[in-house]
């Protein structure tokens, strides 16, 4: 019996294993599925994944901690990542980063007290022609001005 994973997540993991010659290769899709169920990947979920794929727990743990998109602790309802790399900086991303911190009252790597937003910086997101930009729950918000940023952050609920 799985500790925390839903039937739906387990079946999505099982489905992923059919796309590869071995179970281990289904690790990334499995962890994506776990994170979309739980919002993060906790220790119980890691054990469930290890059992579902029949691989050692360390295999799961090292992957969770290696990739930046996986979180092993609860985070805010919305993930907001602002690109800090060169192309965006050349177009003034420093001002966008400062404004985001000021608006939310938190630093990068932190979550607002109400648990609504986790603010982070990110490396180049392949949106260099429309910088400054941010990444938010799988979508891009591009050509940012301070007004556009404040409006976007203000509308998160």
């Amino acid at each position: 019996m799985a500790r925390v994973l839903s039937e739906e997540t387990l079946s999505s993991i099982k489905d992923a294993t059919t796309r590869y010659p071995n179970n281990l290769a289904a690790m990334l899709p499995a962890l994506h599925a776990v994170q979309s169920q739980l919002g993060h990947i906790n220790a119980d979920a890691e054990l469930d994944v290890a059992e579902a794929l029949d691989v050692p727990l360390t295999r799961v743990r090292e992957v969770v901690t290696f990739y930046t998109m996986f979180y092993d602790k609860p985070i805010g309802k919305h993930k907001v990542k602002i690109c800090r790399n060169l192309a965006c900086r050349l177009r003034g991303a420093d001002r966008i980063m400062a404004k985001a911190k000021e608006h939310l009252g938190i630093d990068f790597g932190e979550t607002t007290a109400d648990g609504l937003v986790t603010l982070e910086t990110d490396e180049c997101l392949a949106s260099c022609g429309t910088g400054p930009m941010l990444w938010y729950n799988d979508t891009f918000v591009e050509n940012l001005t301070e007004e556009k940023l404040e409006k976007f952050l203000g509308e998160l609920s």
Binding site: R91, R95, G129, T130, G131, P132, F140, N143
Partner: peptide
């Protein structure tokens, strides 16, 4: 100096 904040503004390239 600090760089100007100047998005390109061309919506064609926005997702």
């Amino acid at each position: 100096p600090e760089y100007d904040l100047a998005p390109t503004g061309d919506a064609f390239w926005e997702d």
